[in-house]
């Protein structure tokens, strides 16, 4: 068996049609990753039963784990297909789309919920003027910068959302990644001014309180974004905001 690489892939032809499974085997080559193996399958899309089929559809781009587009479930776990090295995986390698998002076709999902939810939490910074405001660049302490940089590594791949027991098609939860961006935007010197707006956005339906700390998000994040630390800090910020809302200040 060592001279082939076997795959079991969940297929779905249409967003509304049912799934089915197909198995493929490609000749063994050292240092294949899941994307390069999918490319090899596409060259010769014949199942192990000898049937010639339409090649599986997937999404990918950068091939260096920075764009976040090739997220899929490899052996049940959401991760980046490009950095999933075949030599480290148990075979047959089971590929599924991230089913907490709507499936477009085969392994390709519609991750627009990620961007919609970033909008929901106002994860942007209002510009402080299109003219020269005659002030220097804002100063940020190295400690704060350290955390901000870790948060800014998020590439909206959606792995954390797939692993979260509270995120899903039929549920309202914003999800871990957009929550972490609230903390990043709140700590920006200009972004600070919209802090209360963002906190109120996550103190509403589907907001921070829908998290119950299963903490899968931080375990699957390919960029090691400190998601659970962010959720804890947002817990503190929302507690303080709640007190400000009730008692003023």
């Amino acid at each position: 068996m060592a001279d082939t690489i076997r795959f079991r892939i969940r297929r779905q032809d249409h967003p509304d049609s049912g799934p089915y499974w197909q198995e493929f085997a490609i000749p063994y080559r050292r240092e294949h990753n899941v994307v390069s193996a999918l490319l090899a399958i596409r060259e010769n899309p014949v199942t192990i039963d000898g049937e010639r089929v339409a090649p599986p559809v997937w999404d990918s781009n950068c091939m260096e784990e920075v764009c976040g587009s090739c997220s899929l479930r490899v052996n049940g776990r959401a991760r980046q297909a490009c950095s999933a090295l075949v030599d480290t995986l148990e075979q047959p390698i089971v590929l599924e789309p991230m089913l907490t998002f709507p499936v477009v076709r085969d392994l390709l999902v519609d991750r627009s919920a990620m961007f919609d939810n970033l909008r929901r939490v106002k994860a942007w910074i209002d510009i402080d003027g299109s003219w020269d405001i005659h002030t220097g660049a804002p100063r940020i302490s190295p400690q704060e910068w350290d955390l901000n940089y870790a948060l800014s590594r998020c590439m909206t791949c959606g792995c954390c959302m797939d692993a979260c027991p509270h995120f899903g098609l039929d549920r309202d939860f914003i999800g871990p990644a957009p929550l972490a961006q609230v903390l990043l935007m709140n700590s920006h010197p200009t972004g600070k001014y919209s802090r209360a707006d963002r906190l109120h956005a996550i103190m509403s339906d589907g907001g921070l309180t829908d998290c119950s700390s299963a903490q899968n998000c931080v375990r699957v994040c390919p960029k090691h974004v400190p998601l659970t630390a962010a959720i804890g800090k947002l817990g503190r910020q929302t507690t303080a905001q709640l007190l400000r809302d009730i008692f003023g200040g």
């Binding site: 049940g76 692993a163 119950s212 899968n216």
Partner: peptide, 24 residues
């Protein structure tokens, strides 16, 4: 209400804290 809002996935993600989530 919280119970019905969650969907366990310990078979995919068998981490300690995920099991604790289910146990809770």
């Amino acid at each position: 209400v919280v119970f019905w809002r969650g969907k366990q996935n310990v078979t995919h993600y068998g981490y300690f804290r995920n099991w604790m989530w289910l146990a809770q």
